[in-house]
Design a binder for these strands. Structure first.
Lengths: 69, 69
DNA sequence: TTCAACTGTAACATATAGTTTACATTATTC
DNA sequence: GAATAATGTAAACTATATGTTACAGTTGAA
């Protein structure tokens, strides 16, 4: 699953650490999400949206090929 | 966390069971999500979007008060 | 009013999201 | 090029999303 978290984070001039702290999650979690290595919770996605000031649709999507669950 | 899954599901004329099957998840999972009783995975949200033909932003959001994580 | 389909929910099991600690690698700045 | 900040990642743990089974309440059609 693809996402624009890294780009959006940099646009608001935050490090992974800073974003993580604002959200109340660890830096590793942010790193893994940016790398597409796992499948975050909706609440976490919404928190990220809130901090980086983007909508869900702007940040997260799946390529058609990989649509399963 | 609030969502419009139930409304969107009914609009495309599916039961919880049918929606669940299309997505590859159990009926209980759909029920709990519709009831707002838990916090689905992003992939699952995206699968629901796909089936009911809505965007993430149309289906999922949080009230400002309850924004934590 | 009965029967069947649909839905809510509970207990317990499993998979995986997210944490903690730790270390390695890659910028960046001096 | 050394020091420091930022990032990637791994192992072992914890919390929780989701599955399984089961049963009860609800709704609608006959």
């Amino acid at each position: 699953m693809k996402n624009n978290v890294k780009i959006a984070r940099i646009q608001v001039d935050l490090t992974q650490q800073q974003l993580a702290e604002k959200i109340g999650v660890t830096r590793q979690t942010i790193s893994l999400i940016e790398k597409g290595k796992y499948n975050p919770t909706l609440k976490l996605c919404l928190s990220i949206c809130d901090v980086v000031q983007k909508s869900l649709d702007e940040l997260f999507w799946v390529d058609k090929e990989e649509r399963t669950k």
